[in-house]
Design a protein around this nucleic acid. Sequence first.
DNA 1: AGTTGTGTTGAAGA
DNA 2: ATCTTCAACACAAC
Length: 284
Amino acid sequence: MPELPEVETIISDLNRKIKGVTITNFWSDFPKAIKGVTLEKFKREMREKKILKAERVGKNILLHLSNDKTLHIHLRMTGHLLVKDKSKKLNQKNFAEKVNQYIHHIWKLDKNKTLEFSDLRKFATITLLDTDSLSEYLANKKIGIDALDSKFTFVKFNQLLDAKPKTLIGIFLLDQSIISGIGNIYRSEILFASGVLPKRKNESLNKIERKKIFENTEKILRLAIKMRGTSDSDYRDSDGALGHFQKVLMVYNRERQLCKKCGTIIKRETLGQRSVFICSSCQK
DNA sequence: AGTTGTGTTGAAGA
DNA sequence: ATCTTCAACACAAC
């Protein structure tokens, strides 16, 4: 599941591999994922445009093009972007893996490269925007402050918590309109590291607990970026390779396994229709 | 073999 | 308003 660290890994890969390259053509067998324009119009808009830069806001990918257009890509659950270089024989093995075989869109690039979009469940979306209208578009989407934005301070975090006193912290952390970037994996990990149960109301959290959640959010997200994300299931980087954070998960997807800290059996609970994983002895 | 769970988001319903 | 449910879709696990 691509959350902030996985998207950040993709963004840095894209900037390293395809910044400045020219799109020669575009192919899709699932144009439904392309929002706002027909496939034909979209193809026309792609041809002979340069990819200037990749950017990230929360889990959202922004690709700035040379025609004052910006591509907004959301990977949703199973989307991932692969960069292939036909002049290199590298990564054939990764790309052959089944999870990388659900290619529904291809940007053909110069220098023998392609940007290929694999998406098993086909929930991902591609939106073509005027770069000028970007800030308006993002405001409309109600994307909250990025969890790694330097403006996301402890003071700001407290203001956000106090604005939603009755909300459960486990639900709050997942709400992209408040803070963007945290998904199901990292909310369980952040709350475990902070010793706080997901069903605690914001108003019940004392200053020490708030501080721990705030600090662990940055700490865990940055460590996960360093480890190139969590490949618990479908996620792969632009080489089609696995991330490594799944090796150090403390609670996520570890139902009925023993807590790595205290040996208590990890439990799975449902919160807002989604699973959350807890150690009832480490978290209060 | 049919049912259920999976997680992200937007839209619809209450 | 805010919460809950569902739908988008494919597949693995039961």
